[in-house]
Every structure is written in structure tokens, then in C-alpha cells.
């Protein structure tokens, strides 16, 4: 009996991989370009910014908070980098981008954790503000950045893997250790799981959460570098459509994990799934807007299957 259910559990956890494989096969049959090396590389390189932002969202959400402004931070940081790099040099640009990203992350943490504004409300307002800022800085026009390093990051390969994918994998490694193996991640999990229990165990309630928001800011900065590389510049509001994708990637990540918690490898898998889906659907000729509907329904499904409480929830 027990063995049987164990087997079932293992099958259940495998189902998503089997499903993914099947979908890939279907895509490949319908359009053989799908499995061409160059297309696979495209999928990989497009994934990097989304993956980085999703890692940031995952670390904030683990602690029981939320951040809608990450796409805004990425755009704001990208424009800052470009404007400063064109005015001075790349180093100043990168430094500026990092500073604004961390600063906005800190402000999010401050408003949510210290002041006590609901995370959705605070970060939705922050999202609008950062979108405003990126347009103010860019005056609403697409910005170009010609710099060998940025170009290299966006367009060249190491071996056969795109440079920015390698970069994202490196960050993945760091995040994996930090969240899954380090005390910091453990504290975030404890705070997200039961804030009172964490407090009783002597874990600080505010600091790790604010740090998570700032970490998310740093990750957005990394994402903005990758994006600048791919686009050789930046088009204002290019990240606006990625909000749903980050949320969905994190949710997929938690639903494939054994403990049903948000985690970094799962989030990465979620990003890969999203990448394969949008690329494959595009290749077999499905209009991109259908993808949006699929995502919306997926989010609802994931949300509906998540936790419940006894009485109507109020804010």
C-alpha cells in the first residue's frame, strides 16, 4: 500500500517533465525548426532576463511578501545604465543602474515591511512610478547603447551557449546556494511559513524581508544588463508584458516542488517551460495573444489549487 502511493507520488512529480517532453515532440513534429540548434539557443538566450527577475520574485514571495514592481525596476535600471553609459562610461552606467535598482528594492521593502502597506498596493504604485521614471529618462524614445561588452553579452556565445545564458546560470548557482542551502533562505522560508513560529525561534521578522526586496532589486539589475545586451539598448516599457510571466514561473516552480513551496530550481524550470511554450507556439503559427489567455488560465488554475482558510479573507 505504502509503496504504491509512493510510486504514485513519484509519477505525479514526473508528469510535468513527461508532459513537457511530449509538448516538445509535438512542436518538433509540427515545425522541425523547433529543435534546430539555433532555435534552441534563441530560447535559451531569451530566457535570461525572465529567469533573473523570477528569482527575485521567488525570494520575496518565499517570505510571504509580493513584488509587482520588478519589471519596472528592470526597465528603470536598463535606461539608467544606457543614459549614464552614453554620457560617461559603462562602469558609471552599471554602477548607476545597480544603485537605482537596489534603492527601489529597498523602498519596496521599507513601505511593505516597516510602514505596513499591503505588498500588492505598494509595489503596484512603485511599478507605475518606475515605468514613469524609465520614460522620463528616455524621454519615451528607444535608447541605443554601443559597447563591445554589452554587445558581446547579448550576441556572442561561449562554446555553443549564449553568453547571457551562462551569466544567468551563474546567478542561478549563486541563488540556489543562497536560498536553498544558506541560513538566509532558511529564514525567508521560516518567515513565509509561520511568522510567529519564526519570531519565537529568534529569527528577525523585518530585516530578512527587506533584504529579500533589495536582493530582488539586484537581480533586476542583472536582468536589465542582459536585456540591454539583447536589444543593444532599450525600448521603454519593453518589460511591461513580463509581469505575468514572472508570477507564473514562480507559481509553476512551487507546484512542481515536493513540499509545494516556492523554490529556485522550480522557478528556473517554470521559466524554461514558459520559454518553450512561447517559442513553440510562435513557430507553429499560433498568434501570440493566445499565449496570453493560456497564461491567464494557468495562473487561475495554480491560484485556485493553492491554500484556503476558514473565513472570508480580508485585507
Amino acid at each position: 500500500m505504502k509503496n504504491n502511493s509512493k510510486l504514485k507520488g513519484q509519477l505525479k512529480s514526473l508528469i510535468i517533465y513527461i508532459g513537457l517532453l511530449l509538448i516538445c515532440i509535438v512542436f518538433a513534429i509540427l515545425n522541425p525548426t523547433f529543435i534546430s540548434p539555433s532555435n534552441l539557443m534563441t530560447i535559451l538566450s531569451h530566457m535570461a532576463p525572465l529567469a533573473l527577475m523570477s528569482f527575485g520574485l521567488a525570494s520575496v514571495m518565499m517570505a510571504g511578501d509580493f513584488d509587482l514592481s520588478l519589471v519596472g525596476i528592470t526597465g528603470f535600471s536598463a535606461v539608467t545604465i544606457i543614459v549614464l553609459a552614453n554620457q560617461f562610461n559603462l562602469l558609471v552606467g552599471l554602477l548607476g543602474g545597480l544603485i537605482v535598482a537596489v534603492l527601489v528594492g529597498f523602498l519596496n521593502g521599507f513601505f511593505v515591511v516597516k510602514v505596513g502597506i499591503h505588498p500588492w498596493l505598494a509595489t503596484i504604485a512603485m511599478m507605475r512610478m518606475t515605468f514613469g521614471l524609465e520614460q522620463i529618462l528616455s524621454k519615451g524614445y528607444a535608447q541605443n547603447l554601443n559597447h563591445p561588452f554589452i554587445y558581446w553579452l547579448g550576441h556572442s556565445r561561449i562554446g555553443f551557449i549564449p553568453a547571457q545564458t551562462i551569466f544567468a546560470l551563474l546567478i542561478f548557482g549563486v541563488m540556489y546556494v543562497l536560498i536553498q542551502k544558506h541560513k538566509f533562505g532558511y529564514h525567508l522560508y521560516a518567515l513565509g511559513g509561520n511568522r510567529i513560529a519564526a519570531q519565537i525561534a529568534g529569527i528577525r521578522v523585518q530585516k530578512p524581508r527587506i533584504l529579500a526586496y533589495m536582493l530582488a532589486g539586484v537581480l533586476c539589475f542583472f536582468a536589465s544588463i542582459c536585456l540591454t545586451g539583447t536589444l543593444s539598448g532599450y525600448t521603454p516599457l519593453a518589460t511591461e508584458k513580463m509581469v505575468n510571466d514572472t508570477i507564473l514561473a514562480v507559481f509553476i516552480g512551487s507546484s512542481v516542488s515536493k513540499r509545494k513551496v516556492i523554490n529556485i530550481p522550480g522557478t528556473f524550470l517554470g521559466v524554461i517551460i514558459m520559454g518553450i511554450f512561447s517559442n513553440g507556439l510562435a513557430l507553429i503559427g499560433v498568434p501570440s495573444y493566445w499565449m496570453q489567455l493560456v497564461k491567464g488560465i494557468l495562473i487561475i488554475l495554480v491560484i485556485v489549487t493553492s491554500s484556503r482558510s476558514e473565513k472570508m479573507v480580508q485585507i
Binding site: 522560508y189 521560516a190 511559513g193 513560529a197 513551496v261
Partner: peptide, 12 residues
């Protein structure tokens, strides 16, 4: 202290 309430993280 050990309280009556359930103070633990369910997924730990």
C-alpha cells in the same frame, strides 16, 4: 517556552 498554539512551519 512551549505554547498550546501550533507554532511551526508546515513545510519544514
Amino acid at each position: 517556552c512551549i505554547y498550546q498554539d501550533q507554532n511551526f512551519v508546515p513545510y519544514f
